[in-house]
């Protein structure tokens, strides 16, 4: 059932285009640095000024650029569509005629969205890596702490960072899944989910709401950069993962409470 859902998801033109655009973000960044003929040191997003020294940094620069806006948007689209999209197409009824039950369907949808989160961040990392390797020299990687690690370890840490970013998006994805069970209009669910992401990001930037900052699901979204320190700093990454787990626990059970008792008319 999960495999079937995954196949349906990734066969969609919309999803293919989204992943393509995600991969194009770091590639465009790398191309821009290449065409402008060098770094503007100390300006622009972190990691970008390193791209011309080491093409591998295009992947990290891509993650840094994509996480505040584009990645949450894409996750909102896919998670908001998860249930509401089926309801809108009138296919939810048929899915529920299968004997597997609503809870199982919801769990499958949730797993599909989670896999998509990972696919999305890996697309960014891969796009950056490929563009970086083509356009720039690659070599040993300088960490944020000023130490040097091997290229292989750098790439491994980059993909680990993509994994952390994917996990960081799960809180938002579970909110999207819940919203998706509330309505039959997928566009509404997508917009509401994206709205939550924007709201959380805005609150996180207002000093007056400092008390709730540690509770906002966007608060630790840049923690993935801590993987590029030596020694790796785990504090914020662990805090991020715990926070996401909390959001998943609350919103997934809310989605379950809603979906398992919902009147499915369409």
């Amino acid at each position: 059932m999960l495999l079937a859902e995954l196949a349906t998801l990734f066969r969609r033109l919309r999803v293919k285009v989204l992943l393509g655009v995600l991969a194009a973000i770091p590639a465009a960044l790398a191309l821009a640095v290449y065409l402008s003929g060098g770094p503007s040191s100390g300006r622009g997003p972190t990691f970008l000024d390193q791209v011309s020294h080491n093409g591998m940094f295009a992947a990290l620069a891509g993650l840094t650029v994509a996480i505040p806006f584009f990645l949450p948007l894409v996750v909102a689209v896919v998670s908001g569509d998860a249930i509401a999209g089926e309801a809108n197409l009138g296919t939810l009824r048929y899915l529920l005629t299968r004997p597997s039950g609503r809870t199982r369907l919801l769990a499958t949808k949730a797993a599909t969205v989670a896999v998509f989160c990972l696919a999305a961040t890996v697309a960014v990392a891969l796009g950056g890596l490929i563009a970086g390797v083509i356009l720039f020299p690659i070599g040993k990687v300088v960490t944020l702490s000023g130490t040097t690690i091997s290229l292989l370890e750098g790439i491994a840490r980059t993909f680990a960072a993509a994994g952390i970013v994917a996990a960081s998006l799960l809180g938002l994805a579970s909110i999207g899944l819940f919203v998706s069970t509330l309505t039959d209009a997928p566009v509404g669910a997508m917009a509401a989910t994206a709205g939550f992401a924007v709201l959380s990001a805005v609150l996180d930037n207002v000093p007056q709401t400092r008390a709730i900052h540690p509770w906002l699901f966007t608060h630790h979204w840049l923690a993935f950069g801590d993987l590029l320190r030596s020694p790796v700093r785990w504090t914020d990454i662990v805090a991020d993962l715990r926070l996401q787990l909390g959001y998943i626990a609350v919103f997934a059970t809310m989605a379950w409470a809603r979906f398992s008792t919902k009147d499915v008319l369409a």
């Binding site: 039950g101 626990a249 609350v250 059970t253 809310m254 409470a257 398992s260 008792t261």
Partner: peptide, 20 residues
């Protein structure tokens, strides 16, 4: 899945308990 009204309400206790 025919759930009674009461059972529906009870299910919402799960997320509340998780949050608590």
């Amino acid at each position: 899945m025919p759930a009674s009204r009461r059972a529906r309400r009870l299910r919402w206790l799960v997320p509340v308990a998780v949050a608590a």
